[in-house]
Design a protein around this nucleic acid. Sequence first.
DNA 1: TTGAAAGCGCTAACAT
DNA 2: ATGTTAGCGCTTTCAA
Lengths: 350, 350
Amino acid sequence: MSVSGIRPRPTLKDIARLAEASPSTVSAVLSGTWQARRISESTADRVRRVADEQGFSINRQARGLRRGRSDMVGLILPMHDNRFFAATAQSFEAEARARHLCPVVVSTLRDPAEEIRTVERLISYAVDSLVIAGASDPVAIGALCRAAGVRHVYVDLPGEDAPSVLSDNFGGAKVLTEALLDRMAPGSGPRALPYFVGGSPADSATARRSDGFRAAVSQRLGQVAPDQVLACGYAPSRATAELAALCDRLGGLPAALFVNSLTVFEGALRHIVTLPASDLEGTVFGCYDHDPIASFLPFPVHMLRQNSEAMIARAFALIDEEDVEPRVIEIAPDLVPPRTIRPGTLFDLG
Amino acid sequence: MSVSGIRPRPTLKDIARLAEASPSTVSAVLSGTWQARRISESTADRVRRVADEQGFSINRQARGLRRGRSDMVGLILPMHDNRFFAATAQSFEAEARARHLCPVVVSTLRDPAEEIRTVERLISYAVDSLVIAGASDPVAIGALCRAAGVRHVYVDLPGEDAPSVLSDNFGGAKVLTEALLDRMAPGSGPRALPYFVGGSPADSATARRSDGFRAAVSQRLGQVAPDQVLACGYAPSRATAELAALCDRLGGLPAALFVNSLTVFEGALRHIVTLPASDLEGTVFGCYDHDPIASFLPFPVHMLRQNSEAMIARAFALIDEEDVEPRVIEIAPDLVPPRTIRPGTLFDLG
DNA sequence: TTGAAAGCGCTAACAT
DNA sequence: ATGTTAGCGCTTTCAA
C-alpha cells in the first residue's frame, strides 16, 4: 500500500521496542524458553500479540549462528527419480517434521565428488545431523562428519564409522528366491534353473543379494553354477543385452529370473516383449524392488518392497539416542506376491 | 589423534592468525572478492594454504547473516513419490548447482497448512528464491514471499502474483486425445466414444486438460456429452470404482480412455484386470504422464511425458532475470506413442 | 595492499 | 519477573 514499497521485515528488537519489553524477554517468549524465565502471562501475551501484528518471523540464520546449530537435518540421496529413494525422502521428511526440524534433501547422482561437496556444504550450513543413503564414498563422508562433530547414519549402503541401516539383502533375496523356486516349473537342463541378473558385484547390496539367491538355490537344488549370477550393472540397456545373450545360450527364458532392481527389470522387459508369447509360460519373475504397475503385467512378478519407512524411523531413533556405535542394522523387506490371476481375464496366460 | 578428542572447527579468525593476515584479508581471499581488494598473490597463496591445512570451511550461517542471504534456493513439492515431481526435483538440483546455490527440496503432501509453514520456514532460513510446484494455496504463499521480498515462481499449478510455468495442459490433452481418436475403432453408440477419467475439476490442470479433450473430440465427432468427463479425483480406489461403474453403464470398456494421471491409471488397471481378455481389443488408452513400465502392458497406452526439465529451466531463467511479472508460460509435453507390437509376441493382442 | 572495527539478528549469562 | 550485555563468525566500509 505505502509508496515506499516493502519495508524490511521486523527484527526481534523491533518487537521488543513495540511491546515495551527487552529483546531477551521477547526471545524467551517466542522460542518457548519462557518457562525457565518465569515471564508473566500478560507480558507473554503482549509480546505474542505484537509479534503477530508485525508478522514477525525469526531469522533462523541468526538464531542458528548464536546457538551453534541450525535445526536442519540433511538427507543425501543418489537420486530422486527412483521409487525407493523417493519413498525414503518422503519418510525422512515425516520424521524430521515430527521433531520440528527442517528436512533438507539433496541428491548427488552417485558422483563421489558431488557427494563430498554436498556433505561439506550441508555441514557448513550447520545441519544438526545427516542421513546418507546409498553412500558412494562413506570413508570420506565419515571423516568430514567426524571433524565437524555432525552425527550421521548410513542407509541402504553401509559406512564404517557410524551405524548403518540396510535392507536385509541376504534374507530378502533368499525369501524371494524361495518363492520363485516354489512356483518354478519342474524340468531338467540349464533352462530349468533360476538365474540372477543385474547389479554390480562391487556393491555390497548386490553381493548380499546374490549370496541370498545362492543360499536358497543350493539348499533346494544342491548347487549353483557361477553363470547363474549375471551382475551386469544397473543400466536397462545392459540388462536387455545380457538377457538376450542368456536366452540365446539357453534356447529361451530360464524357469525363473531374479531381477536385481527396477531399472534392470525395465531392461529385461525390452527383451521379453520380443519373444513369442508361449515362451513366457514356463517362467516366473522376481524383482528386488516394487512397482505397482509391474504387478499388472501379463505374467507373474514376485516383488520385494523395501521398507524405507522402517529404515528411516530406525535411522532417526539412532540419531535421537545419540547412538554412534558403528554396526549394521538390517530391515526385512516385504514380499509382494503377484496378483491373483482370474481365469478368463486378460491376464490369464493359460 | 589427540587425547582431547575433536577440537572446534577453525574459524576465519583462526586462519587469519595462523596466516598472519587480518580477518578481512582472509575473507576476501576465500570468497573470491580479492580481485576487488588488490591482495598480493603471495598473501592469497599463504592464506589458502593455511586454510587448506586447517581444513577450514566457512560458516554459512554467519556469512548468510552478515550478507542478508543464504545462497539456498527452495523447491516446494506436493510429494517426492511421484514420477513428475521426482523428475522436477532432479532438474531443480541441477539448475541450482549450476548457479552454486544449495538446493533445498521440501514436500508438503498437498496440505495447505503444511505448505504455508514450509514457506515460512524456508523464508526464515533466508532462501534467496523459491520455486513452488503444485501450490495448493498460492495466495497465501504469494503474500509471505512478497512480505519477505523473496522472488518466487510457480510451477505445475499457477499463482497470481508471480510468473507460472505450467505444462501445456490444453494442448497436450488435445494432442493425446487426437492420437486416441486416430487409433479408435469405428462404431456407434456410447461405447464407441472416448471418455476422460480422473482429476479434480477444482484443479486448474484438470480443467485445462478436460477442455483440450473436449476440443479434440468435438472437432472430430461434433459433440461431447457431459458424462464423457469423469473427474473423480486422483485416488486409485476412486478411479477403480468410477471405471467399473462406467463399464457397467456401457456394457464394457469405451473405445478410448483418457486417464488423467498415473495414480488414476493404476486404479483403472485394477478394474481392467478383472475383465475378459477380449474386452480389451477394442480400446485405446491415453495417460497424461509417463511410466516406462506401463508401455509394456499388453494393450496400447499412449502417454504424455511432461517436460519437467524445460519447466524448471524456464523457472530459473525467470529468477535469474528478476522477471516477476505475473503470467502463465506453458511448456508442451511430449507424446510417447505405444511400443510397436510385433506379431506373434506376447504383446500381440490379435 | 592491508587492518580495524562495526554490526547482521539472535540467545544466554549475569544482573537486578 | 525482566533488562543489559557480550558475542556467535562473518563481510564491509573506512582508514591507513
